[in-house]
Simulated scan of single mutants.
Amino acid sequence: MMFFVYHLQTYSPKNRAWKKVIDYVEKYKYVLIKDELSLDALKHELCDVVNRINAEHPKTKRMQYTAGPVDSGRTIRIEAHVMSGGLPDTIFFIDICKVRSVYQFSEKVNMPEQKGGEG
């Protein structure tokens, strides 16, 4: 099963750590993900990036990473946020959907079939 990043939302960075994360995730806008293994790898990669940037900036509030299904499992959301005053302050979120089908144009499908012997 294939997946597609159909929505990537980022918010104004409040510090350099947020800016690094936002700059990194923006490369995934409108990306096709070939299979579930690749989707899992993407989730782990983004988690590692958030954790690495947290380690590089120990004086800033710790960014938290989450990934999971929304909308009855039809959409997968990956996000990072910082807890501020008891409420999450979102850094980014990525919505990923399952690809239902692929359309491909083919002239052969649109051509009338020729029967043997006709020229």
Rank of each mutant, 00 (worst) to 15 (best):
T66F: 03
E107L: 09
T10G: 04
K29Q: 14
I96W: 05
V109L: 11
L42F: 04
A80C: 10
N15D: 15
E118H: 15
T66S: 09
E36W: 06
V99H: 06
M111G: 04
L42C: 08
Y103A: 11
R74Q: 14
V99I: 13
V50F: 02
V82T: 04
K43Y: 02
I76C: 03
S101K: 10
E56Q: 13
L42M: 14
G68W: 02
T75E: 10
G117F: 09
G86V: 06
C47A: 13
T60R: 07
G86L: 06
L37D: 14
I53D: 00
G73P: 03
D23E: 13
M111V: 13
P69F: 15
L8T: 14
R77Y: 06
A67E: 06
Y28F: 13
R100W: 10
K34D: 14
K108C: 05
S84G: 01
V99E: 06
Y24Q: 09
L32M: 10
Q114C: 11
V25S: 01
G117K: 07
D35Q: 02
C47Q: 11
M83D: 05
L46M: 14
K115L: 11
V21R: 02
R52F: 08
I53P: 00
K61S: 07
L39R: 05
M83H: 03
T66Q: 10
K59M: 05
M2V: 07
D89C: 03
E113P: 08
H7L: 08
V49G: 00
S72P: 00
V109M: 11
N51A: 07
K29F: 11
Y103N: 10
Y103S: 11
L42N: 09
K59G: 00
H7K: 13
D35V: 01
D89Q: 12
L32W: 06
K115R: 15
L39T: 01
A80H: 02
D35N: 14
I94S: 01
K14F: 00
K115E: 15
E36R: 12
E45R: 06
T75F: 05
D23F: 03
L8P: 10
M111F: 12
M83G: 04
G117T: 10
S106V: 06
R77L: 04
E56P: 03
S84R: 09
I33M: 04
R62C: 04
